[in-house]
């Protein structure tokens, strides 16, 4: 079969813009929900867009070196790369992106890639708080990746495939086929890791606006910052799409996608507004204890019960 690459790239551009706008709008929506919890009205829905544009229109910018300039580029390459290999809408040729037989491995790699590039860029900014933020962020990332990786291994064994498309296909035909119900232990481990991934409290120590002025991006400003902000929305929405695909049966249309990803996000928000911030040693201990044990239990469960 001949693949029309030009059309595929065009389709990916369409998916990218929809997911980016959706991510920004959802960011504003979530901010408003948090504001309601605190008894406020909150930001207008247009605020994330205006913030990005304002930073883009800044007249001056200070560079700290080549790596400093490449940091945000790596970060957004990580976000775009992650999205590029995730089929966003199941069964749709237009929104399946560049998914292939082993895309799950590549997607998990890409999720790391942006963070490491950002760490290099922020390291060159020379700000001590950026270095502290990176040290905290990378150690927390290492710890939450363990339960997440264990959960992914469990579902890979369960469905016997590394293709996200086949994992979604195996969950079709009613909610009882979702991983959430066929393998709840793996989903529990992954959702606990998800709390760390979103960066809301109690796991927001690496940003910590009140003590280390917002951590790694401390020195990033002007257009660098608008790239980082765009990526934050894009990468956040992409992670939600990945979780929905792996654990909640995927989506066959945009409305279904929006409802499911919103509900998944609300898990992190509900925990975030209720709990104060962990110290970094506390959060690492947390991830290496209960979620990791649940992750190991999910593999045992898959091996002993589901695969036999």
């Amino acid at each position: 079969m001949e693949i029309n690459w030009l059309q595929k790239i065009g389709n990916f551009g369409l998916t990218l813009s929809i997911v980016l706008v959706y991510g920004l709008l959802m960011g504003a929506f979530i901010e408003r929900i948090i504001a309601k919890v605190q008894g406020r009205i909150g930001i207008p829905y247009s605020q994330p867009f205006i913030n990005i544009l304002k930073n883009f229109f800044k007249r001056t910018a200070v560079s700290h070196g080549v790596m400093f300039e490449l940091g945000p580029v790596f970060r957004i390459a990580g976000g775009v790369g992650t999205l590029a290999f995730i089929p966003v809408i199941f069964g749709s040729e237009t929104f399946s992106n560049f998914s292939f037989a082993g895309d799950l491995m590549l997607v998990i790699y890409f999720m790391f890639f942006g963070q490491l590039g950002m760490a290099l860029g922020a390291g060159e900014s020379g700000h001590p708080y950026a270095a502290i933020g990176i040290a905290r962020g990378l150690s927390q990332m290492t710890s939450y990746e363990v339960p997440f990786a264990l959960a992914v291994v469990a579902i890979v064994i369960q469905y016997d495939t590394l293709s996200i498309n086949e994992i979604i296909a195996a969950q079709q035909g009613g909610y009882q086929n979702w991983t959430l119900f066929t393998n709840p232990i793996a989903v529990a481990a992954a959702m606990l890791a998800f709390l760390g991934m979103t960066g809301y409290s109690p796991f927001d120590i690496f940003l910590a606006p009140q003590e280390i002025p917002i951590g790694p991006p401390t020195e990033f400003h002007s257009a660098y910052l608008s790239l980082l902000q765009a990526n934050r929305a894009l990468f956040g929405a992409t992670k939600l799409v990945l979780f929905m695909n792996l654990f909640f049966g995927g989506a066959t249309g945009w409305v279904e996608l929006m409802i499911k990803t919103w509900v998944i996000y609300m898990v992190a928000i509900a925990v975030g507004v209720a709990f104060p911030r962990f110290r970094v040693d506390q959060s690492i201990r947390f991830f290496f204890r209960i979620p990791t044990l649940i992750g190991i239990a999910s593999i045992v469960y898959v091996q002993m019960v589901l695969v036999r």
């Binding site: 901010e31 504001a35 605190q38 008894g39 406020r40 009205i41 909150g42 930001i43 207008p44 605020q47 205006i50 930073n55 200070v62 606006p209 009140q210 002025p213 917002i214 991006p217 401390t218 020195e219 990033f220 400003h221 910052l225």
Partner: peptide, 19 residues
């Protein structure tokens, strides 16, 4: 805070002078 809520008019605090 809830009483004045400057977020409504696009005002937000930023901890670093660069931004």
């Amino acid at each position: 805070t809830a009483r004045f809520d400057a977020n409504r008019i696009g005002v937000a605090g930023r901890p670093t002078p660069r931004q």
